[in-house]
Design a protein around this nucleic acid. Structure first.
Length: 740
DNA sequence: TATAGGCATACGAAGATTTAATT
DNA sequence: TATTAAATCTTCGTATGCCT
């Protein structure tokens, strides 16, 4: 509230003199100013808004804040190692065991590690400067001093481990609280001064995972995130941590600190910059951006705006009372509250020359153009506004006042689509500027994508179902109307999902016509997304395969690409799609069929002769809950997980029995873990790969899975799995008899 | 302390039906 | 032939991963 009511914008520049704080604006390039001016001059910009001038002011204010240069932030990462009993994670609340090493990596070229013990004969193999300590307390005090020199401190899981452990350990060793730079909260500890960013929390945030890092990682451990984003892993000496020499421990610990730092520095400090920009948009400190979910960001953004305008923030009950808790549309799926996006039935077959068009940020556009917000949908102004109906619902929208959500989301959307996207590609600007605008564009994408979703999420404090329902209802209306217009003018639509349409071989004039109609009728921007040389559509929605004019293969939704599919089938599937990428015309298909058949037969042969390694046969499925929470059903990956836990507790200290390296014997399975299992002929039909033997593999099951996976592509090409696998002569014989 | 809904696939659980075995 | 148990099929629901 202090920040809100003082109107302090997080992430902006301020100067402090004599106890006064004043906002500073750094100069921005002339070309950027000019581009904003032309955006504001465009008469279309405020269209749909009851008060266009107010809207223009929002656009201007946002641009001023977001155009400010993004500072380079001085920061240090650290990581600790702790003595531990076998197979037991040390408890940070007790902090009974010694801290054995602390590694550092900082933005000003610090590469250091402190380690307990005597230096051996050989130098540690690490680029870091190593300091050996005999006294643990002194080492911790030195570490505290090092950390205190930076405004931002980075950790990986520091909230729940490194920070509380250091705090409590220092306490235990007699460091007085006033000399301890950390303080405890309930479970977590953090810095008294400065910003602590726990990257484990940041990378666990779905919004970052999906929109900033396009789902490249699926587990949230330092090792898997680093592996996916940096292509680097933790050090592995092949022995348990407690048997490392001090030099090895130093290298290991420093490397963890280095990876932690690198996660914020790769791609030109991408993550740090995103945190700053989102902080500016959400009016929320970086610590919170890095820890809280996207709904909290948007809450902060809206609350700031309420307080700025002296508006009352409604109570949940007041909002609920305005729609009596009932939706006016029926969801397609049960257990959903209201109806969502429209998916058009695909035209099964192979289609050449397909243009895909989509509406640029459809839902944010609708929110702006139709003035949607919790206070404008079903407003209390009476008949005048009530005549402004939302199609296919019982709702109406205010005509008198701008909706707050519409102002905020609308202005951010316009800036992203018509300003930052082009600035990030503007050749007249310097590399640094272009990069900044690309970061701003990415940050906006995250916020905009979530803006509609939160309105329909009960946990969101401004949850207002009619607003969410109106957004999707108008979306369905727009895509249906567009398809209708296309059909009337003889343009063939092959498929569409929510905000996209697949058009069969249109002329440039037809494409232009569709764009103009969408703009004129609905005020939304339709763009060409991509051009396919050909697309293979099955009769299933959200499942297709296409080759773009540039030869890039697009696979959407097919099992062959999904992460849980065994690697050997995934790579076979990949090879098949690569073969199909070469197809230029219909005649080419016949030739490729021969190549595909050969590949598949070879693969089946290897499967039946058990030549495929177990790892390549494993299904990899994530636990969305803790194992004990599976009460209604015990799916296969849980069965495998339970075997794992049993085996590890039964095996006791036979650590070599499982894995042998890295992981160690104890395998506590928890939420978020990915379980690798194979299908076997033994009892429950599954076994974790770690425990399975090649001779137990159920080849029949694998052949069936292979069939159903590959059939999604081959069946459309007119190929039959059984025939490919050698039964082809029978069918020829059958034809002969029938013919005779 | 967590944005939404729509869709495909695999499989578990339980009920319904068929088949085999026994009286 | 009636009864019971086992095997098989059917239906519904759960879980996961994906699409927009």
């Amino acid at each position: 509230n202090y920040l809100y009511d003082k109107r302090l914008v997080m992430g902006r520049y301020y100067s402090v003199s004599g106890g006064n704080i004043s906002e500073e604006s750094l100069p921005i390039p002339e070309a950027v100013r000019a581009a904003l001016k032309s955006l504001l001059l465009d008469r279309e910009t405020g269209k749909g808004m009851p008060d266009p001038d107010e809207y223009q002011r929002y656009v201007t204010e946002w641009a001023e804040t977001l155009n400010q240069p993004i500072p380079q932030i001085r920061r240090i990462s650290f990581d600790i190692e702790v003595d531990s009993e076998k197979n037991r994670i040390p408890d940070p609340h007790l902090a009974e065991r010694r801290v054995t090493a602390v590694g550092f990596e900082a933005s000003d070229g610090v590469h250091e590690v402190y380690v307990l013990g005597e230096r051996g004969k050989r130098e540690a193999e690490t680029p870091a400067q190593v300091t050996y300590y005999a006294d643990e307390k002194q080492m911790i005090l030195d570490a505290f001093e090092k950390i205190a020199g930076y405004p931002v401190v980075l950790t990986f899981n520091g909230d729940d481990f490194d920070m509380p452990y250091l705090h409590n350990r220092a306490n235990r060793l007699g460091v007085p609280p006033e000399d301890n730079p950390l303080y405890m909260m309930r479970d977590a500890a953090t810095l008294k001064r400065g910003v602590h960013v726990d990257l484990y929390r940041t990378f666990s945030n779905r919004a970052f995972q999906v929109y900033a890092f396009s789902n490249k990682y699926s587990e949230y451990s330092l090792n898997s995130v680093s592996n996916a984003l940096l292509g680097e892993q933790k050090l592995d000496y092949g022995v348990p941590l407690d048997s490392l020499t001090p030099e090895q421990l130093a290298s290991y610990c420093y490397n963890d600190a280095r990876l932690t730092y690198m996660l914020t520095s790769f791609g030109d400090d991408l993550l740090m910059k995103l945190l700053v920009v989102i902080s500016r948009i959400a009016k929320m400190p970086i610590d919170d951006i890095a820890r809280l979910g996207v709904s909290q960001w948007i809450r902060s953004l809206l609350y700031y705006e309420h307080r700025r305008h002296n508006m009352l923030i409604p109570k949940r009950d007041d909002l609920n009372a305005r729609f009596e808790g009932k939706a006016s549309t029926d969801a397609v799926m049960k257990d959903k509250k209201y109806r969502g996006g429209l998916v058009v039935d695909p035209q099964k077959g192979i289609h050449f020359k397909v243009t895909v068009m989509d509406f640029a940020s459809l839902y944010p556009s609708i929110i702006k153009v139709q003035n949607l917000s919790y206070e404008t949908v079903r407003c209390a102004h009476g008949p005048e506004c009530e005549s402004n109906r939302v199609p296919d619902t019982s709702h109406w929208v205010c005509k008198r006042r701008n909706g707050l959500t519409a102002l905020l989301i609308g202005s951010l959307r316009d800036l992203r689509v018509n300003y930052y996207k082009s600035l990030s590609r503007d050749g007249t600007l310097g590399e640094i500027e272009r990069q900044q605008y690309s970061v701003v564009s990415q940050a906006l994408k995250i916020i905009l994508n979530a803006s509609y979703g939160v309105m329909g999420a009960e946990m969101f404090p401004l949850y207002f179902l009619p607003a969410a329902e109106a957004t999707t209802a108008i979306g369905r209306h727009i895509i249906l109307e567009t398809i209708k217009k296309c059909n009337e003018s003889g343009i063939e639509i092959l498929y569409g999902d929510t905000d996209s349409i697949f058009i069969k071989d249109p002329t440039p004039e037809q494409v232009q016509g569709v764009i103009e109609v969408a703009k004129a009728d609905h005020g939304v921007e339709l763009e060409v997304d991509k051009e396919y040389r050909y697309v293979v559509l099955s009769d299933r929605k959200k499942n297709y395969f296409g080759v773009t004019t540039s030869g890039k293969v697009d696979v959407k939704g097919l099992t062959g690409k999904k992460s849980h599919t065994p690697p050997f089938i995934r790579s076979l599937f990949g090879e098949i799609t690569e073969i199909l990428a070469d197809v230029a015309s219909e005649e080419d298909f016949e030739r490729t069929k021969v190549r595909i058949t050969a590949k598949m037969r070879e693969c089946a042969e290897r499967l039946n002769s058990r030549k495929i390694p177990l790892e390549d046969l494993s299904f990899n499925v994530m636990l969305s809950k803790a194992p004990s929470e599976y009460t209604k059903n015990i799916p296969q990956h849980i069965k495998a997980a339970m075997q794992l836990e049993h085996a590890s507790s039964a095996a006791g200290d036979m650590s070599s029995f499982i894995g042998g390296g890295g992981e160690g014997a104890s395998r506590k399975v928890k939420k978020g873990d990915i379980i690798s299992y194979v299908k076997t002929v033994t009892r429950p039909g599954v076994k974790p790969v770690e425990l399975a033997r090649p001779d137990e593999i159920d080849s029949t099951k694998y052949m069936e899975f292979m069939e159903s996976t590959l059939d999604q592509v081959t069946s459309v090409l007119g190929m039959d799995f059984a025939e490919i696998m050698g039964a082809k002569k029978q069918s020829a014989l059958g034809d002969f008899f029938h013919g005779g």
